[in-house]
Structure formats: C-alpha cells, structure tokens
C-alpha cells in the first residue's frame, strides 16, 4: 500500500434516504454507547455518524434534506492544534485525524473548535448491560468517562489490512476491499469510501464531480468528505 494515503468518503446526498443503517453499523463496529432517553433530552445524543435532517420550504412545498455528518477528517483540522496533550493529532500516513483516547484528559477544546460538531464526549462511563458487552469489537477500545471520541474512518480496519501479512488473506489493498462500517451497510450506496491517492479507486474516478461540495468549505478545513448534491432527472427526454 502506498505511503501517505488519502482516505476519502463521498456522500451522495441524492441517494441518502436517512435510513440510519450507517448509524447502527457504526455503533456496532466502534463500540459507541447508546445514550439513554434522559441523556438525549439533555442534548447528549451520541452517534459518530448522524443524519442531520433539515426542512426546506413550507407545507405543502416542503423538502426534507438529509445530511449525514461525521468526522470530516480535515486536512487542516481545527481540533488538532488546540489539544494540549496531542490526543487529537494528524496521521500523515493515512491522511486522517487521529484521536488517541488514552491521551485525552477531557478539556473538550477540540469539541468546541470542531465546526461540524462531530466530536462526542463521554459524559459518563459507558454502560453495556451484560452480556451486551460481549458484542463489543475487540479491535476498538471502549472509551471511559471523560474522554473525547469521534469517527475514525474505521482506522482499525485500515490498520488490520495494513498489518495483515500478505500470506494470510492476500493483499487486501484493492479498492473496495477496505470499507468502513457505514459504507458497507449503506443500502442505497450513498456512502463511498476509498483512497484518493489511488487513481484506480472509485472515489478517484468519481471526483472531481460537478455535484461535489464540501461542508463548511469556507472555513478552510480541507475536509476529506465530499458531498454530492442532488442530481438532475432527464426522464422524458
């Protein structure tokens, strides 16, 4: 695998149906705890990937817009320099914003500085009623109370592929072999994941795209997530 990857996600908003398959897949893969009702009411819902739903227009000409938001893996991440303990740092090798839970002391500065609000704080120690804890993915640590966490582009899957000796599985570096949990689950193929530095990858072939946009691009954060806005219908031509 080439050094210095640029992992990229494409979100095709034209295909997103808001079904939340990605959300649950992420909970399962990354040991993300579920916030109970009281916590959600307090504004502490916790999903590494969330589907933001915006209303546009008024009844009856109203539109519901779904916007899946997760860590944008910024090239110039605002969360990184503000961390006093290097818990959030940049991985040049993978082109990702790393979050090292064990280094985190919980200043929550990164969360404030994240314009996408995709950093989540463990307000309490996560609880998994036994034996629900048997489901927890051993590849991913369970974050304790007082620690920030966020989407990692399933770094554990990237690491696993990178560190698997070729003889065991064969070189799983072809595009598509490596999928994040959310892209894998997405029924309507609205999420596409790949390495932008690999010219053969699907993301490379899809970008640039005349529908592409990045979220809050004016902030100069250089996100690695590209959104494809709605397409046009040429039926009847």
């Amino acid at each position: 695998m080439a050094e210095n990857n640029k992992w990229t996600m494409i979100v095709d908003l034209d295909k997103c149906t808001g079904c939340n398959a990605c959300v649950v897949a992420c909970h399962a893969e990354n040991n993300v705890p579920i916030a109970n009702e009281e916590e959600v009411i307090k504004g502490r819902g916790l999903h590494w990937i969330r589907i933001e739903r915006y209303w546009e227009g008024e009844y009856p000409d109203i539109k519901a817009r779904f916007l899946p938001v997760f860590c944008q893996q910024c090239g110039n991440a605002p969360c990184e320099p503000v961390c006093p303990t290097y818990a959030s740092y940049h991985s040049d090798e993978e082109g990702l914003n790393g979050q090292i839970y064990a280094r985190c002391v919980g200043t929550r500065y990164c969360g404030n500085n994240c314009p996408y609000k995709v950093r989540f704080f463990n307000w309490r120690a996560p609880e998994f009623d036994e034996p629900l804890n048997q489901q927890l993915n051993p590849d991913v640590p369970v974050r304790g109370a007082g620690v920030m966490e966020k989407c990692t582009f399933c770094i554990q899957r990237i690491q696993r592929v990178r560190q698997t000796p070729e003889g065991d599985y064969g070189p799983m570096t072809r595009d598509g072999d490596l999928q994040t949990a959310c892209t894998q689950a997405c029924p309507s193929d609205a999420l596409i994941f790949g390495n932008l530095n690999d010219p053969e990858s699907r993301v490379s072939r899809m970008l640039p795209n005349d529908r592409q946009a990045r979220l809050l691009e004016h902030l100069g954060t250089e996100p690695a997530v590209y959104y494809l806005k709605g397409g046009t219908t040429n039926v009847g031509e």
Binding site: E52, E56, L215, L216, T233
Partner: peptide, 16 residues
C-alpha cells in the same frame, strides 16, 4: 440556514 445548498435538486422538478 442550510449548511449545504441543495441547488441541483431544486432545479429538478422544473427541469422535468
């Protein structure tokens, strides 16, 4: 405000 404009979709219906 919508964080991302969905411009292309707006035009769909008219285009059809």
């Amino acid at each position: 405000h919508l964080p991302l404009s969905y411009g292309a979709v707006h035009e769909r219906i008219e285009e059809v």
